[in-house]
Nucleic acid binder design. Structure first.
Length: 729
DNA sequence: GAAAAGACCTTTTTT
DNA sequence: AGGTCTTTTC
């Protein structure tokens, strides 16, 4: 066999050959990380370890798929190495063992919308006002608690005030409701696996024995739960290789703990550390720009990427008058200069920025695809059909059942549904059982009985998944649900057809593997895929996505739009240095996606939530040295949207506010960063311009400024000292 | 029970 | 601005 490491550089080779014991691989952007992992797996196999003893964990299905493909090409054939995401790995384990926790192996996986629906019901059942705890905020909070391994009981213990105590009740009730529905939310998939392992050491042993070599990709994005899982699994053989880049840690808000990678050496004594710092992706100017930005972060492992590539083109900075001009500029530039559309990506900080881009790409006939935003599986018609499938698979699932009980309309209205739900809750039976016994409630049962017979008929149905979907649509007359608008109707119908195609594809892929394509596996696959997983290069379109989604991808030409204060970095990060550093890492990720050409664009004015906002160029722009940047100013091309005069827009600037957006003469980029001195302290009584007198609760440093929390007789408000008049009484 | 009108929120990022 | 969820009206 040929030497597996022959195409690798010295350092990459070292990483591949070091197979025993803990290994921390710090791999900078574009340093050939996937290459190292796949070669390392191949090497371990060559050394005599069977493929089923190797586990590689990624964060996205996309990364897993890519890794599988590349491994196959190295090995010249298929293999049974476990390469999967955290979530599908755990789901797979739970399908086999979850009965030990009292759940049925036909459990459903709730996405965030489903969880929120269930939470809303819980909050109502507990008679708590949704003004105090909204389903949405509760969902967020619960997810954060779960990421940090905090159970309802744990939270109850640390909750001090009434609001937190109430919240503990909601959390507890929600967890019980999930159990009743035989359902797990995203976080539970990991948590329940941990619980399983903790309570059943022998089950854990099976997997510890099995996975003699473990590799974890994007280690900087792991949260405490995932960290614990890895620890448990790797504890026996300790052949754990984690790969990551602290500079690309951008999921702090989801509980990712950057400490996991920064302290790996402490957690695993005897760790070998290898740094991959040669970048094979970007030309020098671009890479240097990225280095200069990330250098401003304090919390990071020191390193600097280098490249042998030529200097290339400078980073192109383009100012526009407004978002419409920006969109027009991007679309026209693509149209005129980059005929291979798949080479081009338009990246943005948040999904809402995609719309203007889309408008102009359409006008210029540039094919494009938006990733993220509304997921395919989040569309109403798709969720409806999937809810039918879910119910057939797990009849205990009340969330799915309630979703479809009157879809399409069959005369079972909200009043009836509420009665049934209350009945189910009181009698501690499932929603479906309550439906079956609805005669006890004195309701007119004809329509309900019809629905129950319908479900029972479908439960009896024998055939493939795609046939089942067709049967559901036929028997429920679902088409009437698609609306009168012919265009919309057609579009939704296409989506359903697409779902049927996916089911067929799924079935075929299973038959290739000589396995039975079960409904369980189909639903699981569907609930664990993100849009980006369907990303396919060379498809002839421009890719539009958030910077988060773009991680792990690369494009010859990148447009980073909306490179402005308030957007990137986002407003919400101003008050907190940690968050600002995460924004900077995000910026670093964005820049390092580019191979040859990078555009940074800004709009002085843009429409947001129906209002016009004025933004300064991003502070990160100033962190890139001038000599790496080429300025381009674009004359306004597009007429401003209907009714609004372009000149009226401009007039809104007060003299002081007009950003000098020509070239780099835009001096006051940020609100003047004068040093702030506070003449008050925590506990002092102060007067604030708008709210009047209050007591200072907290003072929190935020860059050169301070975030001051003030209690106005029970009303808690936060202010930035620099912007708000606060005076001691 | 369904359609129409109104309130409300959103936009930070997602497995 | 635009969509979703809630309340009102028929």
């Amino acid at each position: 066999m040929s030497d597996i490491t022959k195409d690798l550089n010295q350092i990459q080779r070292k990483a591949v050959l070091h197979t025993e014991g803990p290994l921390l691989l710090l791999s900078g952007a574009g340093s050939g990380k996937t290459r190292v992992i796949t070669h390392r797996i191949a090497y371990i196999m060559e050394q005599g370890t069977p493929d089923y003893n190797i586990l590689a964990i990624t964060f996205t299905n996309k990364a897993a798929k890519e890794m599988k493909t590349r491994l196959e090409s190295i090995l010249n054939g298929p293999n049974s190495v476990w390469i999967s995401t955290f979530h599908s790995l755990c789901a797979r384990i739970l399908r086999v063992h979850i009965d030990k926790l009292g759940y049925g192996s036909n459990f459903t996986i709730y996405d965030s919308t489903d969880s929120q629906r269930l939470l809303r019901e819980c909050i109502r059942e507990l008679n708590i006002s949704e003004k105090v705890h909204s389903a949405k905020s509760a969902a967020n909070k619960i997810s954060n608690l779960k990421d940090g391994l905090m159970s309802p009981a744990d939270y109850e213990r640390i909750a001090t005030d009434i609001k937190d105590k109430t919240f503990a009740k909601i959390y507890d009730h929600y967890q019980k409701a999930l159990f009743k529905n035989n359902a797990l939310d995203f976080d539970d998939i990991i948590l329940k696996t941990l619980e399983l392992f903790a309570n059943n050491p022998r089950v854990l042993e099976i997997y510890q024995n099995r996975f003699r070599y473990i590799m974890v990709d994007e280690y900087q994005d792991t949260n405490i739960a995932q960290y614990t899982l890895i620890n448990m699994l790797a504890n026996l053989h300790k052949n754990l290789c984690v790969v990551g880049d602290d500079d690309q840690s951008i999921y702090g808000w989801r509980g990712a703990n950057i400490r996991n990678i920064l302290d790996f050496e402490k957690d695993f004594p005897g760790t070998k550390v290898i740094k991959l710092e040669q970048n094979y992706r970007s030309t020098e100017y671009i890479l240097e720009a990225a280095n200069c930005v990330i250098r401003n972060n304090i919390v990071r492992k020191d390193k600097s990427l280098w490249t042998q590539k030529p200097k290339g083109e400078k980073v192109i900075y383009v100012t526009n008058l407004n978002d419409i001009d920006e969109g027009s500029f991007v679309a026209k530039t693509i149209k005129d200069n980059y005929t291979t559309y798949s080479d081009v990506a338009v990246l943005y900080r948040k999904n809402s920025l995609s719309r203007v881009m889309e408008d102009h790409l359409v006008r210029n006939n540039v094919p494009y695809k938006v990733f993220g935003g509304v997921r395919f599986y989040d569309r109403k018609e798709i969720k409806d059909i999937l809810a039918y499938l879910t119910v057939l698979h797990n009849p205990k699932d009340g969330v799915a059942m309630r979703r479809i009980v009157n879809v399409p309309k069959r005369g079972i209205g909200s009043v009836t549904v509420d009665k049934i739900a209350a009945f189910a809750f009181q009698s501690e039976i499932s929603f479906f059982d309550a439906l079956k016994n609805s005669s006890q409630l004195g309701l007119k049962t004809k329509k309900i009985d019809d629905f129950v017979s319908l479900i029972e008929h479908l439960l009896e149905f024998k055939g493939s998944i795609s046939q089942l979907i067709t049967e559901i649509i036929k028997k429920t007359d679902y088409e009437q649900e698609l609306g009168d608008d012919p265009i919309e109707h057609e579009g939704r119908l296409e989506n359903i057809q697409e779902l049927i195609n996916k089911a067929t594809e799924f079935e075929e892929s299973y038959e290739d593997k000589e396995q039975t394509p079960t409904l369980a596996a189909f639903l699981e696959e569907v609930s664990l895929v993100a849009d980006i997983d369907t990303y396919d290069k060379d498809k002839g379109y421009v890719s539009l996505m958030t910077v988060h989604s773009a991680k792990g991808l690369e494009f010859p030409v990148v447009f980073l739009v909306g490179f402005e204060e308030g957007i990137f970095p986002g407003q919400q990060s101003y008050t907190n240095e940690t968050q600002l550093e995460e924004e900077r890492r995000l910026c670093y990720v964005a820049i390092t996606r580019a191979i040859k050409v990078l555009y940074l664009t800004t709009a002085a004015t843009r429409l947001q939530n129906g209002r016009t906002i004025h933004n300064m160029p991003s502070r990160f722009l100033r962190e890139i040295p001038e000599e790496l940047i080429e300025n381009r100013t674009v004359k306004p091309i597009m007429p401003v949207k209907k009714g609004i005069s372009k000149f009226a827009e401009i007039k809104k600037f007060t003299d002081e506010k007009v950003p000098k957006i020509i070239g780099r003469n835009y001096k006051p980029l940020l609100p003047p960063p004068k040093d702030v001195t506070l003449d008050f302290d925590v506990g002092d009584t102060v007067v604030q311009g708008k709210y009047g007198q209050g007591t200072v609760k907290e003072i929190y440093p935020a860059g050169k400024d301070y975030e001051v929390t003030i209690d106005f007789n029970g009303k808690i408000k936060k202010f930035m000292a620099n912007f708000s008049k606060i005076e001691k009484v």
